[in-house]
Design a protein around this nucleic acid. Structure first.
Lengths: 124, 124
DNA sequence: TTCGTATTCAACCAGTGAGTTGATCAAGGA
DNA sequence: TCCTTGATCAACTCACTGGTTGAATACGAA
């Protein structure tokens, strides 16, 4: 996997168990043991999942005696949302522009352009 | 990786090269060869990347002679956005509720509850 | 038909991810 | 102090991913 944060966040959420953990942390903080309970995998495995989420910046852990309660950091979601929104909006706009072109072609004589032409975009 | 669509979409976007491809498809359709050009990997590798994006439902390919132009499907973004928004909102709300609790505790005598209690959440 | 172009398929390799078990560390309670 | 609990570390396995090269496929052009 790549080492930039956006890649880590997407990769972290590509696992259903980790998404489930995030879902549960959204309603309230929880310890590793509590989080591990509903799954039939070892506590160590869940601990690893939490490490992945932490490396992505999605959760933080404070210290409470021998417990390490996990807390969801909602701000990191914005990173994803911004990325997604940037390109979703552009694609959507392009889609609507195509609609307009097709509408304009309605009474036209030379129905060229099955799709609008393409160009080069900037990086991630 | 898990086999549900949400997992496939997140996993697909966890790779910077694939995010870059998506970024470029957002401005317009392009063939595999055109997409491969800027990278110093083989065309086959890019073809594989596109397959991953296609399996996630993020791109479709039509047929034009020996070319297979790729098209970005913006709707799938909504799947992610909805998931993210669901939990981001919940975590945000909880964060603000905590603020309110702290504010209420301002003139209080028994400053219990360093964090609000936790409960169990529903699945992904 | 033959050639060239665009793309995918197949087989392989190195690296990584998710899981395991066993040991270790840190903190409270007897 | 010794024991129990909560969590992580270490080492290992197995499957998958991203890359490679070489062959096959699907067209259009000569």
């Amino acid at each position: 996997m790549a080492d930039d944060q956006l890649s880590r966040v997407f990769a972290a959420l590509a696992d259903p168990t980790r998404r489930d953990i995030v879902a549960r942390l959204a309603v309230g903080d929880a310890t590793v043991g509590e989080l591990a309970e509903p799954y039939d995998v070892s506590v160590q495995a869940v601990s690893k999942h939490i490490k992945v989420l932490a490396d992505a910046g999605l959760v933080t852990q404070r210290r409470d005696a021998q417990r390490r309660p996990c807390h969801l950091e909602a701000e990191v979601f914005d990173l994803m949302t911004k990325w997604i929104e940037r390109y979703r909006a552009k694609a959507q706009e392009r889609y609507e522009r195509l609609d307009a072109v097709l509408a304009e072609m309605q009474g036209d004589e030379h129905p060229t352009l099955p799709h609008p032409g393409h160009a080069r975009g900037e990086a991630s």
